[in-house]
Simulated assay, not measured.
Amino acid sequence: MILINLLPHREAARKRRKQLFQTTMLLSFMAGLVIAGLIYTLLQNLITAQQEKNSLLHAEIKVLEKQIGEIAGLEKEITALRARQKAVEDLQSDRNLPVHLLHELVVQLPDGVYVTSLKQEGQVVSMQGMAQSNERVSEMLRNLSENTPWFSKPELTEIVATNLALTPRDQRRVASFNLRFQLMRTSELQAKDNAAPAAGGR
């Protein structure tokens, strides 16, 4: 016996394919949504973790900036303390400078040279006086520049020939001079003495 299917099988197959396609599309859409949600969640977690790291870094940076500020303040205090210490040391070493000044002048001034005025401003000493001749002034300049470590940079600013009246009848020709030189501090002399062996050892 021959069986003949008179039902519309093509339309039924088309309908099944259509349903299968729609189901596949729906499943693909749902899978896409799930994957997108997972990626979004993963990215959000990464962003949150990075933001937490950034917040931690900002907090550490603020702590470090505060510590750097404190260190800078300490360095300023140390610098100020060193400056005060040096000032105190200079004052202590400068107490004896007038003694050295007068002693060295007595030793280094040649015979025939007389000091009429002596003035000190800081480390610069201005001196006025009279000498029997220009040669005496030259000798004094040599002594001040070569024979004593306490004086440096002697400079003759003026020398004038003038008459000095010892008595109404006795007048002598003398050289009136002005000069200045620098008075060395004890600390400067010590530094100079320490630098000399180091230079000699090279």
Rank of each mutant, 00 (worst) to 15 (best):
L64E: 07
R84N: 13
Q50G: 00
E89F: 06
N54I: 12
T48E: 13
E52F: 04
L102Y: 12
T79S: 11
E65Y: 04
I71V: 14
K62C: 01
L64V: 10
S93C: 01
N54E: 10
E77I: 05
G37L: 04
S93E: 13
H100Y: 12
E60M: 08
Q92I: 09
G69V: 01
E65W: 02
R82F: 05
Q85I: 05
Q85C: 04
T79F: 06
Q44H: 09
E65S: 08
L97M: 10
Q50K: 14
V99T: 08
G37F: 04
K86R: 15
L57R: 07
L81H: 06
L56H: 06
E70F: 03
H100P: 01
V88P: 01
R84C: 00
V99G: 04
I78E: 06
V63E: 13
T41Q: 12
L42G: 09
N45T: 09
R82G: 01
Y40P: 00
T79W: 02
I68D: 06
E60K: 15
A87L: 12
E75R: 12
R95Q: 08
H58K: 11
I78C: 02
K53H: 11
T79D: 14
R84L: 08
L97T: 07
Q51Y: 03
E60F: 01
L56N: 08
E77R: 14
A49G: 05
Q51I: 03
L38Y: 09
Q67R: 15
E75S: 10
S55Q: 12
A87N: 09
N96R: 08
N45F: 06
E104M: 06
K62N: 12
I68G: 01
L74T: 06
L91N: 13
K86H: 05
K53Q: 14
L97W: 02
E65P: 01
V88W: 05
